[in-house]
Design a protein around this nucleic acid. Sequence first.
DNA 1: GTCTATAAGGTGATAGAC
DNA 2: GTCTATCACCTTATAGAC
Lengths: 202, 202
Amino acid sequence: MVDNVNTTENQIFEAALKVFHKKGLAGARMQEIANEAGINKSMLHYYFRNKEQLFAQVFMKSYKRFMETILPTLNEQNTWEEKIPGIIEHYANVMQTNPHLAMFVINELRQSPQEFINIVKTNSFLDSVLITQLREAIQKGQIRPVHPIQIWITLISGIIFPFIAQPMIKATIGTDESVWDNFIADRKRLMADMVINYLKVF
Amino acid sequence: MVDNVNTTENQIFEAALKVFHKKGLAGARMQEIANEAGINKSMLHYYFRNKEQLFAQVFMKSYKRFMETILPTLNEQNTWEEKIPGIIEHYANVMQTNPHLAMFVINELRQSPQEFINIVKTNSFLDSVLITQLREAIQKGQIRPVHPIQIWITLISGIIFPFIAQPMIKATIGTDESVWDNFIADRKRLMADMVINYLKVF
DNA sequence: GTCTATAAGGTGATAGAC
DNA sequence: GTCTATCACCTTATAGAC
């Protein structure tokens, strides 16, 4: 399937992406996807055989958006200190553009068959430039000796979780859109500052 | 309904808690809950009328476990600096005891009716002792001037997210249980150190 | 309170005309 | 490729015997 072409197949796929992201595998209805696409329900089976296979394709695509898009940022030609704000910015953008993405991937992965878990293993960030850079800086005594993977998890936790918990946070700080935007702006600055500060000052 | 009594009603409720946590509202089946409880399916309707009302009760109970249990820790008679490791420890324990809890609450809250969102508003941590303490310390110039709410979100993000993303993390660092335990132990130390360090050193 | 049987409606999937 | 009609199954919910 070729992207960005307005074929029936692509229209269905985009609709499926939207509905599965919002409702999950169990909550999504083939009829709802058909309605969203403005296309007859039979066409879903014609192009994707059944719900299971349609979901599998949606999940793969979503996983790529969620994980693989970060790799270029991790492997850029700059210092680890420059990479950190870049990573934060990247994930904040992904989440803002697609608010259900992270939740969808993480949630479906909980009970998915091994098939899906395997694609996680084959897309590790462990051998990225960032991790290597942090490891080297630790060896040279330039930064605090922490597992680089802990730094990585700290970064993505601090950015992704607030988006996942968005409904709860908004109920607390206020539902106004500008309040949320300020919150996220603060969040990005804080996480970058805090992690860099922690690594350097010891 | 009284807790910890082995009535039919409680057996059903505990089974429902388990199944809903794992499968979510859309994925859970009344028959599966009945099987889990070892009780006839008709009894579910006898005691809880329908799936919707059973779910509502399960959600309320879960939300309390997820949020309200933290309030005592936030209001303890100690300094903010002592509270931070306490909060981290508390949430790590909650997540370890009930690995599906956070995901369930956050996930169902995404599309839940206003009814559920309202209980978030009425259980705010904004007026907790911790937040007050941080605000006062900022006014006195003792710690870095950051929104106390950002500190709070940083703490819970850094602990809850790793448990939510557990399948992905395990696929990366290894599925061995001792590896995971070490990872969490490191995580708890790192988050406490990093946040306290950031607030004090400026 | 507990059980069996069954109704009532929803949902994925296919057959077959065009 | 696209549509309508329809099947087969699943799931919630209830009626009614005990």
